[in-house]
């Protein structure tokens, strides 16, 4: 019984990262920021990026036991750099960061 709980806890990254509501829906916010960047709505992109970061912060406590710390740090880095690129309204680099963050997100817990 104890082993089954441990296995779920340590191998359940894929399940645990799934959104529990609107507030922690990381993939949805990633998509929103991408749309904002594509349409060059920079102010909205910054607002959505804050929401994205807040959603990500809500997910971390759930997944921190089952995923690599380096993966968490990588997404943290992507989001920090993304904020910088949005500030200077740099479309290509913003897209690169979003793409990379999405790749890390998809690989998280696999």
């Amino acid at each position: 019984m104890a082993l089954a709980v441990f296995i779920f806890f340590l191998a359940g990254g894929q399940y645990l990262k799934q959104p529990r509501g609107e507030m922690d829906n990381v993939p949805a916010y990633l998509a929103k920021v991408r749309e904002d960047v594509m349409s060059e709505s920079w102010d909205q992109a910054e607002i959505d990026c804050e929401k994205l970061e807040s959603a990500w912060r809500m997910v971390i406590p759930r997944i921190q036991y089952s995923v690599e710390r380096d993966d968490i740090n990588s997404i943290n880095r992507n989001l920090t750099r993304l904020k910088g690129w949005l500030m200077v309204k740099d479309k290509p680099n913003s897209m690169v960061e979003l793409q990379e963050a999405e790749m890390f997100w998809n690989e998280l817990g696999k």
Binding site: A2, L3, F6, F9, I60, Y65, R69, I72, N73
Partner: peptide, 24 residues
Amino acid sequence: MSLLNEALVVVVRGVIAFITLLIF
């Protein structure tokens, strides 16, 4: 990830490893 979170992860993983070893 803050230092506190790191410590928490180590504690939780430690407890899991300890109990798992005990069972094994």
